[in-house]
Amino acid sequence: MKQIRTPLFGLLAEFESPTDLVRAARATYEAGYRNIDAYSPFPIEELSEAIGFGHNRLSLIVLIGGIIGGLAGFGLQYWAAGITYPINVGGRPLNSWPAFIPITFEMTVLFAALAAVLGMLALNGLPQPYHPAFNVPRFAQASNDRFFLLIAKADPHFTHEGTLEFLKSLNPREVSDVDR
């Protein structure tokens, strides 16, 4: 059909329900495909597990961010109230740790939240203004009511015919070529 052949990025299968997508994603992973991705209008808990997306380093980044924030918050107050500008307030100790806890807590939350957002962006590469999947017109439905599974050509198991047959065997609504 196509007049001009553009380089292929992969194959995109469209599903009607989250259950179909999770089942297909799992079958795809079990068939040995690893360079796969799934798209859904809302988060599906089992999906990330189905495409073999395990733990990433984000939780560690958030933990480190929180610890740095907590230490910085307490340290700032200790440094200000205890070292550089010591004032006797009603006979309380200079290191009045109970009074330092609220700020320490706030700074822990602030730094953990910032680490979560920035770490997430660093790990997933967003914002991403262009992705080959956008070349499939029906992909716009991924933010509405359709569920998509993509197998990239870069996957070692990928062959155009074989992967097309495989995806069709998963009962998709439609399988499309994704141009680069």
């Binding site: 009603g90 309380r92 109970p98 009074a99 806890i101 609220p102």
Partner: peptide
């Protein structure tokens, strides 16, 4: 618990 403690500790 901490709110109660902090206020009473600070007030003394």
């Amino acid at each position: 618990e901490f709110s109660q403690f902090l206020i009473i500790w600070a007030g003394n």
